[in-house]
Design a protein around this nucleic acid. Structure first.
Length: 181
DNA sequence: TACTCGATCGGA
DNA sequence: CCGATCGAGTAA
């Protein structure tokens, strides 16, 4: 079933990031083709006090969508090359989001968007059928098979770099094919 | 305006 | 290890 707007309005971004593991990212290519991939890696970014969060310097043109009510996509360009996909969480005016770092057939945040054909055009769109990109719960239960680690690539974030806000599903049944496309 | 560095990745 | 390549922050 489709994850509702209310699901993403939850203010506990860290808990939501863990809960998203095992859910399905669904991309409607518009020609009757649906791509469905299990989410296997996420990271939480929570508020202006989180020194790793893009909102740590306040609202900017790039991050303004993080201040909206949860349930919309935050897509941004990283290192001038890769589009990174986040789902905004929580209440209006509190900036928080979850980075989708990996799906079952594409490990790495840049590969997720490349695989599903996601770019800046999804910025600010709601995670609904109409937008062509949404999240479904297929009833998968992780049953504690989850690695919890600090977030990747944020060494500049001081004490916040130590927060255990990265979640990885480790399930022997999941085959990760590192397709280079 | 001129730097510097970043929620990355693929190739040498 | 290094380069690609662009937007945000900082200093001036």
């Amino acid at each position: 079933m489709l994850l509702s707007r209310d699901y993403f309005k939850n203010t506990n971004t860290v808990m939501l990031a863990e809960d998203l593991l095992g859910k399905y990212l669904v991309r409607d290519l518009g020609n009757g083709q649906l791509m469905k991939s299990m989410i296997i890696e996420t990271e939480a970014y929570h508020g202006e006090t989180d020194q790793a969060c893009h909102a740590r310097f306040g609202k900017t043109d790039r991050n303004q969508v993080m201040y909206r009510e949860g349930g919309v996509w935050y897509v941004y360009l990283c290192y001038g090359i890769h589009w990174l996909l986040n789902i905004v969480t929580g209440e209006r005016d509190f900036p928080s989001a979850i980075l989708i770092r990996g799906i079952a057939d594409a490990s790495g945040p840049g590969r997720v968007t490349k695989k599903l054909g996601i770019d800046k055009s999804f910025y600010g769109l709601a995670a609904t059928l109409e937008s062509g990109l949404w999240v479904e719960d297929h009833g998968y239960c992780s049953n504690g098979k989850i690695d919890i680690t600090p977030r990747i690539g944020i060494d500049y974030a001081g004490e916040c770099a130590k927060k255990p806000w990265r979640f990885v599903l480790k399930d022997d049944l999941i085959k990760i094919k590192n397709g280079k496309n």
